[in-house]
């Protein structure tokens, strides 16, 4: 039973913080590419004054809105849930809207490039089609045989927990495009597709696990994974991607989930 909180409490001094937000200067370098202008990519850089609460996305917006409107990147929700703005920031795949500038080394230029392994369309925008193609191939939907219950299917909290981690995926491609195998072999399904297969394989309500395991047992499937952990490090949702892939490998070997 929850206890009723007190009507009045003593607050610690300075609670909540706020007030004057510190500013600092950064150098932002962005990898530019626009085939309408040139076949060659190049770097552009800007000196910007930013606030302590600003993220890399704010710096990109400052450039686009105040300096050069042609700098192109995708973004929407701006707080790490829509998955539009995965990019390479100082060599690591991250979401621009979740990366606070103050957490980066601002004494050096901040380097921003498109994610790797997918064709670049313009500046930080890549062609996402191959990524979604792999996703679609693993049957990313619940398949259940037999009669539909009139009410909900039952699932215990433990069964629900079994695949909780992999339901968090926002399809941003940070994991897949951080994978060295994916860079060299564009046919490889990649971590994100396997994560989404995991989400269904380990769902007690699903009846197509075997088919998905068969798909991932393919030569471009899970066995290409060399367990470099790049994907787990890259995931902005904190999904334990490598663990999920190992569980799928294990399930293929034992045919047990």
């Amino acid at each position: 039973m929850e206890k009723e909180p007190a009507s009045k409490v003593e607050l610690a001094p300075g609670v909540g913080g706020g007030g004057e937000i510190p500013t600092f200067d950064i150098t932002l370098k962005v990898r530019r590419y626009n085939p309408e202008v040139s076949d060659e990519a190049h770097w552009d850089e800007w000196q910007l004054t930013m606030y302590g609460t600003d993220r890399v996305l704010d710096a990109l917006h400052k450039v686009k809105w105040e300096h050069d409107g042609s700098v192109s990147f995708r973004r929407s929700c701006a707080h790490g849930v829509c998955g539009s703005d995965a990019m390479r920031i100082n060599g690591r795949n991250r979401l621009a809207c979740k990366t606070l500038l103050k957490d980066l080394d601002t004494s050096k230029p901040i380097l921003v490039e498109p994610i790797k392994g997918l064709p670049v369309e313009k500046d930080l925008i890549v062609d996402m089609e191959p990524f979604f193609q792999s996703y679609r191939e693993i049957m990313p939907f619940l398949v259940s045989k037999g009669h539909e219950p009139t009410k909900e299917r039952l699932q215990s909290a433990e069964e629900r927990d079994r695949y909780d981690d992999t339901t968090k995926c926002i399809l941003c491609a940070a994991c897949t495009s951080s994978c060295p195998v994916f860079w060299t072999d564009g046919q490889y399904f990649g971590p994100a597709a396997i994560v989404n297969a995991h989400r269904f394989i380990f769902d007690s309500r699903d009846d197509a696990g075997d088919m998905r395991l068969e798909i991932l047992n393919d030569k471009e499937g899970v066995w290409r994974c060399r367990t470099t952990f790049n994907c787990s490090e890259a995931c902005p949702r904190g999904i334990q991607v490598t663990k999920a892939i190992s569980e799928v490998k294990q399930a293929i070997l034992t045919r047990k989930v």
Binding site: F141, S144, E152, R153, Q155, D164, D206
Partner: peptide, 20 residues
Amino acid sequence: AVLDLEKMGLPFNRTPEGRI
């Protein structure tokens, strides 16, 4: 509407009895 989503696969949190 909720039952439709559950049947489509939505992972709702569950009660100890396994209901939504």
